[in-house]
Design a protein around this nucleic acid. Structure first.
Lengths: 326, 326
DNA sequence: TTGTAAGCGTTATCAC
DNA sequence: GTGATAACGCTTACAA
């Protein structure tokens, strides 16, 4: 691997001049430039980004922490984010915590080690203090830390409202809604559940909040759980849950002879391709993944350039997409 | 960010002694060690990996190139690979080419720029020569380049055989099978199609090979295409395709009043969670993602350590999982 | 056991 | 317009 000095020697100039040609940081005589460009081509010279990064103290890499890459929602989001980062010249390091707190912590350490320049958090199992202490570019998805750490999230309250209204329109009497475990009350997405409960309550409709872990998406597990819950709540006639879980419920309901819709309604939360996979497309609250990715990366880019982000609390409207389950 | 020199100054020693403590590269007097460890803690010192990488000429990062992160198969594979890399102290940079050749080429450049130490290719739209010219750790999934670039792949021939036998058992007469575009004949996965055709042919069963692009998985597109093809081949009574595509076919077939199975059979290739999402789980040829990831990373790790890999052509057996579509 | 000095490959500063 | 020189933070001879 040719170094800048070898190129310089070959072109009969000093290393810094080669650098100037590459970066256009100063004017170089046309003739000198020619010689240098020739030498570069001849040696098939490619600058060493590791050395550049070392000098500038930046790696050009942004990490994204997710519970599991396989999860359709995070996979979709990661895809969009990678794309946005790419256009701005950053690379994506994708880190799967598998729901392990220790692993999340280890990944966070990448910031201090200068392995990455910033982190996008699509997972959050630590205490606020730990995130607050990072003092480096961090953008949270779905988890409020404090006013100085930007937050981007879908408008979950609105999602809960849209779902509730749909259940009401469908005349449901008992709606199950599944959220992510105990820590649920720390994330913004929990608002959809609160809002759902509130509105349904106002209309005299019952609801049951149920915890489920979805660190690693597995239809078999979900389906088994859905069957169990439908046995436990035989009068349930509605469910709100993440795409795959909602799909599992629809399958289980059909299995047990219920009509969907009619006797059982489902509203999928997220609205990724997973909500479409079922023969009957699921009615879903769609998180605008693309737009979220744009916002996240826009903010991250500003932070990386040491600028203050334009917004630090972005709530992006969701929409209700009508499918065949309500 | 404290540097090693600051730690050294604080502990009243030279920088190299601090380095020795961190890396255990030489014996250090217990007392000195104490002082250094104390200073490190006091300054909250974390070594700068960028500088370390620069010295060792390695980033500690492996890139994986995929057509789309969202695709269930690649998402699953990436998840396992990230996990395997993590245990060996490497990080994963996930790169989505979106099917664009130029973008693939740009990502490959990461090797020469020292941005990553190795690349795992789950995509391949370039000519063999370009891969052969890389001269750095590269492991191919599903695409044979030459004997010196290791290849890991599921045994697609076996997959084709298993699928064919299943169609035969089901008494199918015309089987559609969908593969990825023109370049299809360059990847090992194409063998499943050849084998399917061969065996079906031997049994006097017709088959049609159909090209489809799946760079970005989209159920709507697939379903529309499935409907169209079922209209074009009304006598079709079997299909082999990637999970999501197979699911789309099952949905379309049911829509058009066919019984599944009975009048129409489907064998999904891949067997990710996507094959389970449909209420009727799809009969599928399961690629052992976990095992593939293990092999890939094992080989990559050896290459990164400048050792010769134990195997350079790994074909991992697939299995047939019985679902409700045959 | 420890320190000095050089170097990894790049770029910025300051002369000339 | 160009070249020396130093610096980014770390590690490894080589010396002491």
């Amino acid at each position: 691997m040719a170094s800048i000095r070898e190129v310089a020697k070959r072109a009969g100039v000093a290393a810094c001049t080669v650098s100037r040609v590459m970066n256009g940081t100063a004017s170089v005589a046309p003739e000198t430039r020619k010689k240098i460009e020739y030498a570069m081509r001849e040696l098939d010279y490619i600058p060493n980004e590791l050395a550049r990064g070392m000098f500038r103290q930046r790696a050009g890499i942004v990490a994204m922490l997710v519970p599991s890459i396989r999860h359709p929602f995070f996979a979709s989001l990661a895809d969009c984010i990678e794309n946005q980062l790419f256009f701005r010249g950053y690379k994506l390091m994708l880190c799967s915590t598998s729901g392990e707190t220790e692993r999340e912590r280890e990944y966070l350490g990448f910031l201090k080690s200068n392995i990455v320049d910033g982190i996008i958090m699509a997972v959050s199992s630590l205490d606020r203090e730990e995130y607050a202490a990072l003092e480096k570019p961090v953008v949270m998805l779905d988890y409020y830390v404090n006013d100085s750490i930007p937050l981007v999230t879908a408008d979950h309250r609105m999602g809960g409202k849209l779902a509730a209204e749909e259940f009401i329109r469908n005349g449901c009497r008992l709606v199950l809604h599944l959220c992510d475990e105990e820590k649920a009350d720390r994330v913004v997405s929990f608002e959809s559940h609160l809002e759902l409960e509130r509105i349904l309550g106002e209309h005299g409709i019952e609801s049951r909040r149920i915890s489920i872990s979805w660190n690693s998406p597995d239809m078999e597990v979900y389906t088994e759980e859905a069957r169990r819950l439908l046995r436990e709540y035989p009068e349930a006639d509605g469910v709100m849950a993440a795409d795959m879980v909602a799909a599992a419920f629809v399958n289980a309901a059909l299995e047990s002879g219920k009509k969907v819709p009619g006797e059982f309604c489902a509203v999928a939360f997220d609205g990724t391709y997973a909500a479409d996979m079922n023969g009957r497309e699921l009615t879903s609250v769609v998180q605008p993944v693309e737009k979220m990715a744009e916002k996240v990366v826009e903010i991250m880019a500003r932070l990386l350039e040491k600028q203050r982000p334009k917004e630090t609390d972005v709530r992006i409207p969701v929409t209700l997409r009508y499918g065949k389950t309500t």
